[in-house]
Amino acid sequence: MLLVTAESCTAGRVIHLLSEIPGSGSCLDAGYVVYSPAAKQRLLGVHEYTIDTFNLTSEEVAREMAIGALHDSDAAVAISNTGLAGPDGVDGIPAGTVCFGWGFRYQGELVIFSRTERFFGGREDVQLAAAVYSLTNIPLFHARLLRGERG
């Protein structure tokens, strides 16, 4: 199964963790690191309306990031995240808040799951926890996909 990542908050840590596993190159297609709104729009097709309406730290943006990564890839699975590693919150959103997307190509369609979590600690702690969370939840959402669940 080929994987693509679209990372903001984790700054490439998801794909970095995977790359440390010998032979993982056969399962990795690409990794996007997109911090700015403009990069999310330009590289992944996130809509300006979505950012303006829901905020950069939102499941809606994470979902569009996963969709954009899958559209630009032959991968079957996409992981995306956007959030605030800290040290401060922004727009009333507390530091450590991370929104995730998991996208799957399945029977000719794209199926996207999303969640929001909050992690505690310094920036590096939040980034690592979010990266691990992204990876460890692939089996959960894949199983839900196979059971016919959506979103």
Rank of each mutant, 00 (worst) to 15 (best):
L2G: 00
A11E: 00
A11V: 01
I15L: 09
L18Q: 05
G25R: 03
G25P: 00
D29N: 00
A30R: 11
G31W: 00
Y32H: 01
A39Q: 01
K40T: 02
L44S: 07
T50K: 09
I51T: 08
I51S: 07
T53S: 14
N55W: 11
N55I: 07
E59D: 06
E64N: 11
G68W: 03
G68D: 00
D72A: 14
A76W: 05
A78V: 05
N81W: 07
G83V: 09
G83A: 07
G86K: 13
D88F: 01
D91M: 10
P94W: 08
G96A: 09
T97V: 08
T97C: 04
T97Q: 15
C99H: 02
C99R: 08
Q107L: 10
E109A: 09
V111M: 03
I112P: 11
S114K: 13
R118H: 07
R118M: 14
G121C: 05
G121I: 08
G121W: 08
D125K: 06
Q127K: 15
A130W: 14
Y133R: 12
L135Y: 08
P139Q: 11
H142R: 15
R144I: 03
R144L: 14
R144V: 07
E149N: 12
E149C: 01
G151K: 13
G151P: 15
